Amino acid sequence: MPQHRHVRLGGIDMHIAEQGEGPLVLLLHGFPESWYSWRHQIDALAAAGHHVVAPDQRGYGTTDRPDGVDQYSIFHLVGDVVALIRELGEEQAVVVGHDWGAVVAWHTALLRPEIVRGVVGISVPPQPRGPLPPLTVTKQRFGEGFYQNYFQEPGVAEAGLGADIRATLRLAYSAVRNPEPTEGFLGMFAEPETLPAWLTEEDLAVFVEQFTASGFTGGLNWYRNLDRDWELTAPWQDAPITPPSLYISGEKDVVRTFYAMDDAARAIVPNLRGIVDVPQCGHWTQQERPEAVTDALLEFLRGL
Rank of each mutant, 00 (worst) to 15 (best):
169 L>K: 03
98 H>P: 02
124 V>K: 00
79 G>V: 07
174 S>I: 12
237 Q>F: 03
302 R>M: 12
233 T>N: 01
154 P>H: 04
285 T>S: 11
72 Y>Q: 03
81 V>H: 01
246 L>C: 10
243 P>R: 00
223 Y>M: 13
193 E>T: 13
124 V>I: 15
151 F>P: 00
191 E>L: 07
119 V>Y: 02
286 Q>T: 14
214 S>L: 10
36 Y>C: 10
238 D>N: 08
247 Y>D: 08
251 E>Q: 13
224 R>K: 04
222 W>Y: 13
111 L>C: 07
57 Q>Y: 06
187 G>I: 08
43 D>N: 09
121 G>P: 01
195 L>T: 03
68 G>L: 14
189 F>N: 04
145 G>F: 06
171 L>C: 10
92 Q>M: 11
181 P>E: 11
50 H>L: 10
259 Y>N: 14
75 F>R: 03
231 E>S: 15
12 I>R: 02
210 Q>L: 15
165 I>W: 08
285 T>Y: 03
36 Y>N: 07
119 V>D: 01
38 W>N: 06
84 L>N: 03
157 A>T: 09
118 G>I: 06
9 L>R: 00
237 Q>L: 12
219 G>W: 01
163 A>C: 07
153 E>S: 13
30 G>V: 02
1 M>Y: 10
17 A>N: 04
248 I>Q: 01
215 G>H: 00
300 F>I: 11
210 Q>I: 15
167 A>Q: 15
245 S>M: 05
51 H>I: 05
102 A>S: 15
207 F>A: 07
59 G>I: 10
84 L>S: 05
44 A>H: 07
124 V>C: 14
250 G>M: 09
258 F>P: 02
31 F>C: 08
226 L>E: 08
44 A>V: 15
271 N>S: 15
125 P>C: 11
196 P>N: 07
298 L>H: 03
174 S>E: 09
50 H>Q: 08
12 I>L: 14
31 F>E: 04
221 N>V: 11
257 T>V: 11
288 E>R: 01
136 T>W: 11
268 I>C: 04
295 D>P: 00
140 Q>M: 15
112 R>H: 15
127 Q>V: 15
208 V>I: 09
99 D>A: 06
187 G>E: 10
58 R>P: 07
218 G>T: 05
280 Q>V: 11
139 K>I: 12
127 Q>P: 04
271 N>W: 02
128 P>N: 05
73 S>D: 15
160 G>H: 07
217 T>C: 09
22 G>W: 06
250 G>H: 02
185 F>M: 14
137 V>G: 02
117 R>H: 11
107 H>S: 12
15 H>Y: 07
155 G>A: 08
7 V>N: 03
76 H>V: 12
44 A>N: 05
181 P>K: 00
293 V>P: 00
280 Q>M: 13
65 R>I: 12
